[in-house]
Every structure is written in C-alpha cells, then in structure tokens.
Design a protein around this nucleic acid. Structure first.
Lengths: 260, 260
DNA sequence: CGCCATGTTGACTGACGTCAAGGAAAGTGG
DNA sequence: CCACTTTCCTTGACGTCAGTCAACATGGCG
C-alpha cells in the first residue's frame, strides 16, 4: 500500500499513517505530475500538453499562512494546487472572515475572479504548498487552439459549481452532526480519490476554520467530534482523525450530492 | 418611468406597479432581446451574433410548475432564461427537496451539468417562462471559432460561482432576519439592474421555497417578514412586497459580497 | 362554491450559541 | 533547547433563536 502524504504531517508519530515529508519543490512537468488527471491536461494528448506547459509557471510555493492572492487584487491568473492545501475566504464589512472553501491538491483556485477584474476571495495556504500559475488570457488563447483544453476548463468550472451547490444543500438543511460528519466523509473520499488513506485524515485547517465554513461555532465542532468519538465512529487526536466506522459516518452525513 | 414586468403579475390590482401582461412568445432574435447584454452575446459584434443565433433554439416556453430539465436526465444543452423565473433543486435520498437557487431573466441554467453526462439539478418554472436552448457541443465548437464568445461563457460560469459563494456566506454566518433581508435586497438589486422597480417586488416563489433556500422554516420566514413590516421597512401583501426603506433593509442584510 | 395548498400566528421545546475557565499545542526569543 | 506567550481546543453552565406542533386564515383552482 502506497500512501502519499502531502499534508503537513511533521511531528505526528502517534499515527503511523502519517510519515514525515520534507517539502522540496522541484519544477514538476505536467506529464509527470501526480495531479495530471484532475488538472487541465486530464484528457489532453502528449503533443497538446507541451504548449500548455509553456504558459504555466510551475515554480510557485506558498508558505503556511501566506496568501497566494487576496480579495481585491487584480485578477490575471488562475491556479492549480500541486501539493498542499488552501482555504479561501472573504472579509465582510464588519471585518469578519467568511471561509468559503477548503481546497486540496488538484483543485483550481481563482475561478471566481474571471468575471471580475479583481480576485473575489483570498486564498491562504494551510500548509506549505506548491501551485501552478496559469495566466488566464494566455489560457484563453490556447483554449481557442485546443478544443480539448477548452472543454477541460469548462469541465473544471462546472465541477466547482457542483461542489458549491452541494455545499449550499449541506448548509441549509442539516444539523451540526450531519455537517461535521459530511465534512469528514467528503475529506475521506477526497483522500481515497488521491490514493491516500480514507480512514486516516490529517486536518490542515483549524477547528475555527471548520466551524466558520460549516456555519456553526468552534464549541459545537468540538462537542460534535467528541460525540462521534463516544459513538466509536472515529478517534480524534488533535488534527489527526482516524475514522473507525466509515459506514456509520456516511449514514449520518447522508450525502448523495457529494459523490462527485 | 417604464416598468417591465415579466413576472407572474396577473390579478394583482392592489398594487399599480404590477401591470397585467399576456405572455406571447414570439421568436425573439438575440439582437432585439432585452437580455442581450447579460447573455452570451453581451460583448459580441453583430456579425458574431449571427452564427450564435443559428445554433440557439429561441422557441421554448415552460409553463408554471413544469420542469425545463430534471436531475439525472442526460445533459446536452445549457439554457438562458429570456422571460420568467425558475427555481433549481435537488432531491435528497430521503426524498426531501433542496432548493439551490432562484433564477431570473438573463441567467443561465444547467451549467452544473457540463462536468457530468447528466443534469445535476431540476429546473422548475415558477411562472410561465421562455428560454433559449443552446446545445453545448455546438456552443463549444462555436466558442473555438469566436474567442469573444468563449470569454463570455467563462464569464457567465464565473459569475455563477460568485453567486453561489456569496450564498454560502449568507447561509453560514447570518441569522434569519439577515437572511430574509438579504434575499429581498438582492431581488431588489436584480430588479434594478433590469430597469424594473427596486422597491416593488413580486415573489414568484412560495414562502416554502424561500425557507428551503435560506435554510430556515416557513414559519420563520413568515414571522420575519411580519417583523420587517412592524419596523416599517416593507409592506407585504402576499407575494407582492413593497420596500419602504431600502437603506434599512440593506443595513440589516449587511451584504457586501452580493454587489455583483 | 368548496376544497386543498399556502401562509400566518401562538405556545412550547430544544439544539446550538454565548460566556467562561482551564489545558494543550504551537510559535517566539533568549 | 527551554521559558514564555499566544493561539487553539475542550468542557461546563446557561440563555436564546429558531424549530416543532397545532390551530386557523387565506387564496388559488377545479
């Protein structure tokens, strides 16, 4: 069993599923990138990937707590996460942060800026992360020349719309336990898709961020996780979550729309 | 003052802002369509619009309570609302309906189906409505030939992502009064953009739909509207809402992200 | 005209928020 | 590497906003 751990997993000795990994950031070509099939090149042929690579900057890394881009900054590029994870948020008039989403390797960032000249949210790294930067006007030009690439961009944007619609449903019609269970179950499925353990999760975000995202308070998140532990559904040790009974978790979350 | 009323406004005599309108559905060409500037042709030149028109079916009308498309049906087209309004929803495993959004004239439908072979939601007309149907593969082909059209499709999809992200914020961090106030304020802004009265709204959707959408109960919606009346912020007569104090409404809703 | 879906209001309840305290982890500087 | 500070997390006690249940009013539709 090969487990890729790209999350911030240093200092976790208690759980053998998490290995220590030093972040080196070589210039990874699309062809050899592990995210290839979730990313823009997904259905492209080799000769189509080359021109794409030439417009992509593969060298960007973002330190933990650093922002890749901020709300209000001029929009010119979209990004794909190669390793690591991000949260995106907006700041309300009263200064309160609103977490819009968490984003794992392979996911696109800044797609919401296309319809504006400015970024509509801030993307902050939850751990040391590496991203590919794609100047959007260049991408548009290339997408004209490559129908398949155009299709993939549409595809990725549509996927984002679906993801958010599923989230709308979760927020509007579920109680705290269902929200937390769904959050963890989706994370588990995301890991599974990426050939990582679906039962051993490492939460790169704080309880506060989770609470904000799910529209509940930190205290409720904490209490809910404790309750899920008492029901022997999972075991939580700080940011490391071990899911004992995935089926029960799924049953509580009652997700249909999240099976993307 | 010219007020265009494309909502279901029959039988409302009590409020002079709503005039009776018979729905005739001629084949409206894009060039003369009132939604042109919100729609795919927005930035296109005349000679670019013609080929677009040739792939669009302008003749579709949908009766109240009828579905334009349903969750699970094969996806092949996207739609733009020409007149009328829709709600989109999904059905959960337990059979419960989850309202994802309300859609007015000029807005696109089915963008979430692009990343799947099937529609991901059901679109039900809230009143007699007319739509333009655009076969998606044809649109993709045309978008390759017309860079400006491609750009507009990206733009429309991005706008949808923004709309949903604003909704996520509303659902996760606001109480019932803020939710209802925001809902009404956004509707007011939407009307204003379309050169309709920002103070006289006609709600084409039921209280139940609003409640479902906002993640609260019908009773709470009802009570909240009553409270807003007591505060002299608006006057409600069934589905007709007259906003007395738009500034106060805006203050309660505290929306920043909804100013699209 | 009568029926059924929709909307309003009231009384009561409970899930989650708020406030508060204490402990654990992580960041900081010597 | 160790003290110190700060941030994060957990737990408890209590309050409250919105949900639930119920009754009744209203209006659209056959």
């Amino acid at each position: 069993m090969t487990i890729q751990v790209n999350q911030r997993a240093n200092k976790i000795q208690s759980n053998p599923a998490f290995s220590i990994k030093v972040h080196s950031v070589p210039t990874v070509k699309c062809v050899s990138c592990t995210q290839k099939r979730y990313c823009l090149p997904s259905t492209l042929k080799q000769h189509e990937i080359n021109p794409l690579e030439s417009i992509v900057d593969h060298t960007l890394t973002v330190e933990k707590r650093e922002s890749l881009f901020s709300e209000g900054q001029p929009f010119d590029s979209v990004y794909i996460i190669r390793t690591g994870s991000f949260k995106t948020y907006t700041i309300a008039d009263n200064g309160v942060q609103n977490v819009i989403g968490f984003h794992q390797a392979g996911e696109a960032l800044a797609m919401n800026g296309i319809s504006h000249t400015q970024h509509r949210s801030t993307a902050e790294a939850l751990e040391r992360s590496s991203v590919c930067q794609i100047p959007f006007t260049k991408l548009e030009k290339l997408a004209i020349a490559q129908p398949e690439l155009q299709h993939n961009v549409f595809h990725i944007m549509s996927r984002e719309i679906n993801k958010e619609q599923a989230m709308l449903t979760l927020l509007s019609s579920h109680n705290a336990e269902e929200k937390v269970a769904t959050f963890l179950f989706v994370l588990s499925q995301t890991n599974k898709q990426r050939h990582m353990s679906p039962t051993d999760l490492y939460l790169t975000m704080s309880r506060g961020d989770i609470a904000n995202y799910l529209g509940i308070t930190v205290e409720t998140v904490s209490r809910t996780i404790t309750r899920l532990q008492e029901k022997d559904i999972l075991h939580a040790e700080n940011k490391a979550i071990h899911i004992i009974d995935l089926e029960k978790l799924k049953a509580i979350s009652n997700v249909a729309s999240f099976t993307m």
